[in-house]
Design a protein around this nucleic acid. Sequence first.
DNA 1: TATTGTTATACTCTATAACTATA
DNA 2: TATAGTTATAGAGTATAACAATA
Lengths: 168, 168
Amino acid sequence: MVQEEPLEQSVGFLLSKLGFQTAAGFTAILEPLGIVPPHFAVLRFIGGAEGRSQQVLADAVGVPPSRIVAFVDALEERGLVERRRNPSDRRAHALYLTTEGRRILDAAQALANQYEEEVCAGLSDGERAVLLELLQRVAQSHEIPMNVHPGMRMEGPPLRPGATPPPG
Amino acid sequence: MVQEEPLEQSVGFLLSKLGFQTAAGFTAILEPLGIVPPHFAVLRFIGGAEGRSQQVLADAVGVPPSRIVAFVDALEERGLVERRRNPSDRRAHALYLTTEGRRILDAAQALANQYEEEVCAGLSDGERAVLLELLQRVAQSHEIPMNVHPGMRMEGPPLRPGATPPPG
DNA sequence: TATTGTTATACTCTATAACTATA
DNA sequence: TATAGTTATAGAGTATAACAATA
C-alpha cells in the first residue's frame, strides 16, 4: 500500500502550484504596462547590452527565433525597441531600446521588485533569506541553466531523474 | 534608477522557474504509466471516495465540466475508471475505479513519492522540512485554496496584491 | 425551469519547416 | 553552401456556450 500524503505536504506540489500562481501574478502586475513576462525578458536582455542580434537573444532566452520575431515586433510597434541594420552583416538586426523602452524596462523592474515583496509578505527577513537559499540549492542540484525561465524554453531540461548534480 | 537584481536572487522568479520545471518533470515521470498530472488528480479524487459525480469532481479540482469529460473519457477508455448510472439521479454519472485503475493510482502515487525525493535530493532532512514549512507559509499568506493546482484552474486567484491574508 | 453531462466552436499559443536576403 | 530573420502551417490545449436528457 502506497502512502498518500496530503498534497500540501509535498515540496514538489507546492513548488509547482506556487510557480503557476507566481507566474500568473507577475503577468497580472505587468499588465498596466501593456507587456507580458517574455517582453520583460526581452527588454532586460536588450537593456543589458544593446546592439546584439535576435539570434543571440533567441539563444540567451532559449526560444526559437520564430517566437522572437513576434516579441520584437510587438515591442517595436509600441515604440520600446528599435531594429537597426548591422553594417557589417546586413542579415542581422541590432537591437536597441528607445527612451520609452528604457522607461518601461525601469518601471517593469520596479514592479518586479514590488512583487517580490508581496510574494514574501508572510515571511520575516530571516525566513525570506533562508527560503531564497534553499530554492537556489534545489535549482543548483539539478544543473539548471541560470537566468532562463523554462516558460520561455519548454524544451529545456525538466527537473528529472538523471540530472546529475555538478561535481564538487 | 531601479535596482536590477540578478533573477536568481528573486524568490518569485525561482518559484516560477522551479514550478515549471517541477511540473514538467512530474509529467515526464508519469509518462510510463500513460497518464498526465490531471489524470492523476482525477484518479486521486475518485479513489478518495467512489461514487461521486463529474460535477463534484469538476468543482473539487476547479476545471470546467467540459474538460472533465475528456479526462474521464481517456481514463475510461484505458479501463481505469468506470461511469455508472446513479439510480437516484439518472443525469449524473457515479465514478468508480477499476482494479487496474487502483493499481495505476498506487503506482502513480509511488512515483510521486519517489519524485519528491528527487526534487529534494540536494537538501538535508532538516533543510527539506524548513523549505516545506516556508512554502506552506507563502501559500497560506495568499489565501490559496488547498489541494488545488492552478494548472487545473487557470482562472483561479493568482498570487497577487489584494490577496488579503486570512484574519487572525 | 434548473441541472448533469456532452458536443461544437473559436481562440491562443507554439514548434516546425519553408522561404528570402544576405554572407 | 550556410546563416539571420521571417512567414506559413498545423497541432495542442482551452474556455464558452449551445445542446440533450433528466429532474
